[in-house]
Design a protein around this nucleic acid. Structure first.
Lengths: 231, 231
DNA sequence: ACCACGGATTAGATGCGTCTAAAGTAAAAG
DNA sequence: CTTTTACTTTAGACGCATCTAATCCGTGGT
């Protein structure tokens, strides 16, 4: 049996691997989880003993297949909960993250199944993050780029936004920058500000680089190819 | 801040107080929670330090007003969850208890509010147990008796059944013995078996005394007086 | 090639919740 | 009034997750 805390570490390592690729450093995990580095070293040692991570001392860690599966299970719980709270309990975008974090370790497989069924087996959560399938195969996230890496003139569709900061989400939802929205990059200021035209309406919206860095985008759907329908 | 474990102890003490009145003994709490008596002594000491229970050494323990309020809060969570799982996620009577136990400590006040709203501020859970109101005033449980204390010929309405044993609940739901059902005691065998006629249909059903002891009943509604409508 | 510095690990302590084994107490039985 | 018995509490230990303080790599700068 795995403790809640271990699950949190695995989830963190997974997320950091997605963002920066393996190996993940002790201090990055510590920063992400709000723990001290020695605490992380100690925990990571236990995860290694259980075969959930591979570790090279003084270098960093990487999830094993088994560790990744656990992380995906937790993430599936988290994102299903986010979707459910939004759809059926009238939560807003910005409120769901903390609630899901609190519940994700404590729901049964039965609960997971019923929530997924009630939602019609959704594939993305309200922030656009892919919900791992029930068989826990790693979701494919290729084809996405980060908004802050784009160039003036690029025409893009918002794929995902980070769910971690409620204030930022509040702001983005004001701004109309939500998954599925088409945007066009109209300006990139040298001091770290990206301006985009949102939707077809033509509203212009400036975003600080710190925010633009957390937004993933994909090219607009080609009329010719088949795509997952935008939520 | 109170730990999950402390909340469990307070809930247990509350439940035992309801069943047998204060004071509650160390060993009863231990038995109820599946812990050893020394563990309970130690925990009860901490609860006393926090002013949540009054204790007389070697005698037993009783909730303070503050401790009772915490217990009611947890119980409100538990019973709202049971009701929600039954109503909105297609859970059966017998499945909800464990799920609610796992979640009750981790839902936010916001979640509690929204679940209560989604259910229309219910007053009882699926087992007939009263859901403490949002202001956490102790629910009134007078006017109920225990089925095993009744006599042949008594005409009764089932008020509550225990939610702790899924197998028992399965059995009772088969038997049609659910909150709101009218029953008549037709026989009491000396070796501990109560037989009742269920509903108006006339089906007879025998229940072991161990089960009859967990069923609360009330007199049938008097046509003259106003009562809470049976769910 | 050396060394300094940033990041990682070890060492050692703390609080929580739990246990077993030993000692203590209160109330029933003689 | 004494003894037995059942229950409670104390004593001491353990594992988990965490911290601070101290030590230990490894690498980039000179």
């Amino acid at each position: 049996m795995l403790s809640d805390v271990m699950e949190d570490y695995l989830k963190a390592i997974y997320t950091l691997q997605m963002e920066q690729g393996p190996p993940v450093s002790t201090s990055d995990i510590a920063e992400y989880l709000g723990k001290t580095p020695p605490t992380v070293t100690s925990m990571v040692g236990k995860l290694e003993d259980r075969g959930l991570v591979d570790r090279e001392k003084y270098k960093g860690v990487e999830l094993t297949t088994e560790g990744e599966t656990v992380a995906l299970e937790v993430l599936r719980h988290h994102r299903l909960l986010e979707a459910y709270l939004t759809e059926h309990l009238d939560y807003s975008w910005s409120e769901v993250h903390d609630e899901a974090d609190a519940l994700e370790h404590h729901i049964s497989e039965e609960f997971e199944k019923r929530v997924a069924a009630a939602l019609g087996e959704p594939e993305v959560d309200p922030h656009g993050d892919p919900i791992p399938s029930a068989d826990l195969t790693p979701p494919d996230s290729s084809g996405l780029s980060v908004l802050s890496d784009c160039e003036v003139g690029d025409l893009l569709v918002v794929a995902r936004v980070s769910d971690r900061d409620p204030a930022e989400l509040e702001y983005l939802s004001e701004a109309g920058v939500t998954p599925g929205t088409t945007i066009e990059v109209t300006d990139i200021a040298p001091f770290g500000m990206v301006t985009v035209r949102v939707g077809d309406g033509g509203r212009e919206q400036s975003l600080p680089e710190s925010v633009a860095r957390t937004i993933r985008v994909r090219p607009p759907d080609e009329p010719s190819s088949e795509e997952v329908s935008p939520a």
